[in-house]
């Protein structure tokens, strides 16, 4: 058993090291680490988790310690004796003790937990908030800002909410098809998007930046690539972003052919481009497609090549995505891509 424990410790140590390494070395933005909270709900949970880890850790040390001592002290010393050790059948006092102590621990854990549940879930909604409606689709996110008249997809922009002048964002969560779950670990815990059932959650990111997340409820073949990006903007950046999003799509006569293809192929049945005849709602709104840094819900970066390859055959990046391949020839693809590239 000693060997087992040594191996175990070694494993924990290696795991910790590589944990640390992978959390730092491969960084390109902030990582979706729940121990790097950047908004009040996530921070509250982080604090609670430390408390819970300490208590459970203490229980582990005590109980595993007792077990280890028992195993060592009472291992058979191969002397081949057949004399049995004294038989003990129980002891009411001892058993009572190890019933009462856990009861007390549970009481403490429960009260602490309940407090945080109420703090996060029943926090009074301040007057000055940004309201966003999030609609889950197989396999992409729709974001609507009813008060601002904006509809966008996959990349959520919210203003920073400094601790001193809070400006939280409230998310109304809906689903157009199956159950999804909105999870950006650094900002808050996850909440499900359920058809026929409205949920809400709130975030108040303290620092500008990009926060990664993804759908956290299995929702079909491309659940894995239903990624989520939350841009937390400074007030001025956010205002600029809003201003741009509120404009109708750019009309550029140089790409009129591409636009015509968009409106004659089935594209416009599923996609909306504000200011054109395209008003579909089955797929993401493309009015400001080029303002997004990824396409297909984060599956690939938004470059002309990727766009072209996506339109040619969406299953190339996302096998099972609900956009059909349109069987366009190379020239049409080029023209269409050129058109889409103007949608800043």
């Amino acid at each position: 058993m000693q060997r087992a424990r040594m191996i175990f410790q070694w494993l924990v140590a290696t795991a910790l090291v590589s944990f640390h390494r992978s959390a730092t070395a491969e960084t390109t933005g902030s990582l979706p680490n729940i121990f790097a909270p950047a908004a009040t709900p996530a921070r509250q949970i982080f604090g609670l988790s430390i408390f819970v880890f300490l208590i459970t850790g203490a229980i582990f040390v005590v109980v595993a310690g007792l077990l280890t001592v028992a195993i060592f002290r009472f291992r058979s010393t191969n002397s081949g004796t057949t004399i049995e050790p004294p038989q003990i059948y129980g002891s009411t006092q001892v058993e009572l003790a190890w019933t009462v102590v856990p009861v007390l621990i549970v009481a403490v854990l429960f009260l602490t937990t309940a407090r945080i549940i109420f703090v996060i879930q029943d926090a009074p909604k301040p007057k000055k908030t940004l309201d966003v409606t999030v609609v889950g689709h197989q396999f992409w996110w729709e974001f609507r800002y009813p008060a601002l008249g904006i509809v966008t997809a996959n990349e959520l922009h919210v203003p920073v909410s400094p601790v001193r002048a809070p400006q939280p964002t409230y998310l109304k969560l809906l689903s157009a098809d199956v159950i999804h779950s909105f999870w950006v670990p650094q900002l808050a815990g996850k909440t499900d998007l359920i058809p026929n059932h409205e949920n809400t959650m709130w975030i108040d990111p303290h620092k500008p930046g990009l926060y990664l997340g993804q759908c956290a409820q299995f929702c079909g073949s491309q659940h894995a690539l239903m990624l989520l990006r939350v841009y937390v903007d400074t007030p001025s950046d956010f205002a600029a972003w809003v201003k741009n999003q509120q404009r109708i799509a750019v009309q550029d006569s140089q790409v009129a052919v591409g636009r015509r293809i968009f409106e004659t192929e089935a594209c416009m049945n599923c996609h909306r481009i504000a200011g054109t005849a395209a008003t579909g709602t089955f797929g993401p709104d493309l009015t400001h497609l080029m303002s997004r840094s990824t396409i297909a819900s984060g599956a690939v970066t938004n470059t002309p090549e990727h766009l072209r390859a996506w339109i040619k055959d969406p299953s190339h990046y996302k096998d099972g995505a609900l956009m059909p391949a349109m069987q366009l020839d190379d020239q049409q693809l080029d023209q269409l891509t050129a058109y889409l590239a103007t949608l800043k």
């Binding site: 058993m1 087992a4 729940i34 996530a42 509250q44 949970i45 609670l48 988790s49 819970v52 880890f53 459970t56 229980i59 582990f60 109980v63 595993a64 077990l67 195993i71 854990l109 937990t113 945080i116 549940i117 996060i120 779950s181 999870w183 670990p185 808050a188 815990g189 996850k190 909440t191 956290a216 409820q217 299995f218």
Partner: peptide, 29 residues
Amino acid sequence: LGFLYQFLIAGLTGIMLAVAPLDWQLHNS
């Protein structure tokens, strides 16, 4: 004996998951 150690740890992570706010983070992870 392996079971005893492992079940202890498993039960304690179960308790962590039972802490609802922590589960909002850890659920389906």
